[in-house]
Amino acid sequence: MALQILLNIGLALVWMLLNDSFTLVDFMIGYLIGVGLLYVLRRFLEFDYYFTRVIAIFKLIYIFIKEMILANLKLAKIVISPKMDINPGIIAYETKLETDWQKTLLASLIGLTPGTLVTAFSDDETIMYVHHVDIEDKQEAIDSIRNNFEKTILEVTDNV
């Protein structure tokens, strides 16, 4: 996978040299052409085509932006409504992710979504203590993290 990315960047550099213009736009065009070339030649490459993972990353970004906008609207509704009708609290969330890198990514995504915040980790780092601003149902709050973020993170970083 690392070799393929290097090859792709190399193709982008060749494209920049051929065009004799060294701007970010040309690099991006060259990179996209490299992606296309690698896709056409993927049968001759001995390793997996790495772009499937890039698509998974874009899916993660899409899910994150969607969740963030929804959560922002929810929080805005809470803030504007005249009565503070919320149940804040800390919920233990047991994660199935294994490597430090995956856990950091998950904690950052939870931390960036308005309304949820990682407060602490347990000593063996398998349980995150997530603070929610408004909890309607405990199980629902746990499931929404599990089905959205954790599933997609597993897709992105599987078999690295």
């Binding site: 922002n72 919320i86 960036l112 309304g115 915040l117 603070h131 601003v133």
Partner: peptide, 13 residues
Amino acid sequence: YTRVNAATKASTL
């Protein structure tokens, strides 16, 4: 704890 949410995450969107 709820205010930390507002203070750090108003920035995101």
